[in-house]
Amino acid sequence: LSHGAGGRAMAQLIGEIFAENFANDLLAQGNDQAVFSVPPGRLAMTTDGYVVSPLFFPGGDIGSLAVHGTVNDLAMAGARPLHLSASFILEEGFPLADLQTIAQSMGAAAREAGVKIVTGDTKVVERGKADGVFISTAGIGVVPDGLDLSGDKARPGDVILVSGTIGDHGVAIMSSRENLAFETQILSDSAALNGLVADMVAACGPHLKLLRDPTRGGIAATLNEIAHQSKIGLRIEEDALPVKAEVAAACEFLGLDPLNVANEGKLLAFVAPEAAQDLLRVMRAHPLGKESAIIGACVEDPHHFVQMRTAFGGGRIVDWLSGEQLPRIC
């Protein structure tokens, strides 16, 4: 890819790549905007930027991630995602073949999630002004009437569920970044959760309090966010947390805690206690929720602490960490 002169031919080439891979009626109209009618209900809208190194990792790439992430942000409101936009910042010299691969995987991810990428934009910047490719996606979706999920809705007594094993994405990224080889390759869990959410809403909608995808910062960060938003404390059980053995081993070895490691295809659900077992059943029946588990409950706590009961019986305060691995042992 080149920056500046010769732009017209290039733009056309890129346009063809996207047209081919995202193929849908709205995009095919070739306008600077997509015009469409929306089904009844309230609209949900979200946007996110995707920056990841490496761009291609076991279980996904930046393209699939850019679709899944935005679809999931819509799904966490209980919304049925409709359309996405995609904006690309490409670094001069970025291989066209890689762009083709990324676009392909975005297209596939969108089709699988049942959404269309209906509008987009591309900019090429000078070498060094970007790292390969950055992608921004925005999305809109429709929230069914009567459903109102929000981070401040959890109450003492509500039950906390997770839709599967934690830490897979972060460990997959970290291992490919550090070039680590484990006996079993650890794949990112990157996936669109709107199908799972639709089943959950259909079965337990009125009892659902909130959903959230524990991405950056892992479930530790997300649980702390919710505890503060809802002004409650959370208590989780170490033994109940689903963690793949190879992820646990890799964490041990990298000096990480699975609680702090990112996920891209998992959700945390807070539900009224009377519906917890039903919800668990529904989640486990979905292919993306087979390893769902009840991991804890909400309690009154003026500190809004997230505490984990460990195998030894003590209560560990689960905190969010400031990103880097700053040792606390002195």
Partner: peptide, 14 residues
């Protein structure tokens, strides 16, 4: 070099 955060203090081999 310090690799592994607090684990470096727990496991001297690091």
């Amino acid at each position: 070099p310090l690799w592994g955060g607090d684990r470096a203090a727990r496991e001297p081999w690091r």
